[in-house]
Design a binder for these strands. Sequence first.
DNA 1: GTATGTGCAAAGGCTTTGCACACGT
DNA 2: ACGTGTGCAAAGCCTTTGCACATAC
Lengths: 152, 152
Amino acid sequence: MRGYTRWVPRSKSKLGDWHEYATERLREAGYHKGGGRERVVGLLAGKSCAVSALEIDAELNGVGRATVYRALDQLEQLGLIRRIELGLDSTGFEKVGPQGHHHHHIVCSNCGKVIPFEDQPLEKAIRAIAKRSGVSLESHDVTLRGTCTGCD
Amino acid sequence: MRGYTRWVPRSKSKLGDWHEYATERLREAGYHKGGGRERVVGLLAGKSCAVSALEIDAELNGVGRATVYRALDQLEQLGLIRRIELGLDSTGFEKVGPQGHHHHHIVCSNCGKVIPFEDQPLEKAIRAIAKRSGVSLESHDVTLRGTCTGCD
DNA sequence: GTATGTGCAAAGGCTTTGCACACGT
DNA sequence: ACGTGTGCAAAGCCTTTGCACATAC
C-alpha cells in the first residue's frame, strides 16, 4: 500500500541540527551558556522521541532535578520542545524542529511500546478544523492507543 | 463552507441515555449500587465535556475524594469514560457513548476556553494510520491549541 | 560587580492507599 | 453474615519554590 504515513525512527534524529538551532535560540533569548541547561539540551538533541523529566534527571549526574525542570520549562516556552502525555503519568518532552516539525505517537496499551509517525492527511484534517473554528493553530497533539502487532 | 466539522454543544448532552447505559454496564460488571459511585455517574451524565476529579469532588458534598478517584478508575476501565489532558495539570474525564462515540477539543492557549468538535476526515485519517501500523485501535486523543477568535 | 544559573532541601498539589465502619446482596 | 463500597486521614509521587553559592557577562 502506498501510504502517506511515515514511521519515524525512534533513536536516530532527523533533526540533526536541532542542537545548534536550540543553542542559537537560547542565546538570542539572552540565556547565559554553560551549565545544567546545556546538558539538558545536549541530551534532548540525542533523542528523537519523548523523554520524561525524571529520565533526564537520572541520565544527567551532577545536574539537579530542579534545573532539569527549569530548563524544560524554558525550552518549551521558546517552542524548542513540546510536552506530551503518552502514558498516564509520564509527561514526556521532545524536540520541535525549526519549522515546527514534529511527529505523533501510537502507544501499545499492553506493552507500552511507542511508535512515532508522521501523516499528511492527518495534518491536513487538523489544519482544516482549525481554519473552520477560527482559531489560529499553535500546536496539536495526537495519540493513538491499541494493541501492537507483537502483543496480539 | 460545507465542513465536516461538527461543533459539539458543551453542556447539553447528546448522549442522553449514557446514564442508564453506564448504570447497566456497572451492574453487569457486578458492582453494587447506591452510594458515592452512583453520584459520580450522575454528575458525569450531566456533562458532555471534560470534568476534573477535583471538580467532581467539589460538586459532590458527602462523597469522599478517594471515592471519586476510585469511581473514575472503574468507569475508565469499563470504557464508560475516558481520560484527557486539556490543560497542563487538569486531567479531565468525559463520558464515552455506547459505540465509542466521543469528540475532541480545541483549547485556547490564552483564555483556556475549550471547544469540543467531531470531524470525519480526522477520524478517517486516524483509522488509516492505525490500519497501516497493524495496531488494533482502542482509543485516540486529539487536542488542538491556539488563540481563539475572542482572544485575537 | 551584578544579574543569571544551579544544587539541595523543603514545600505543594494531585492521586493513591490503609483501615475501620456502613451498606448492598 | 459476607463481601463490597465508602470516608477519612496518611502516605506517595512528580513538580515547584526558597535560598545561598557559583558562574557567566
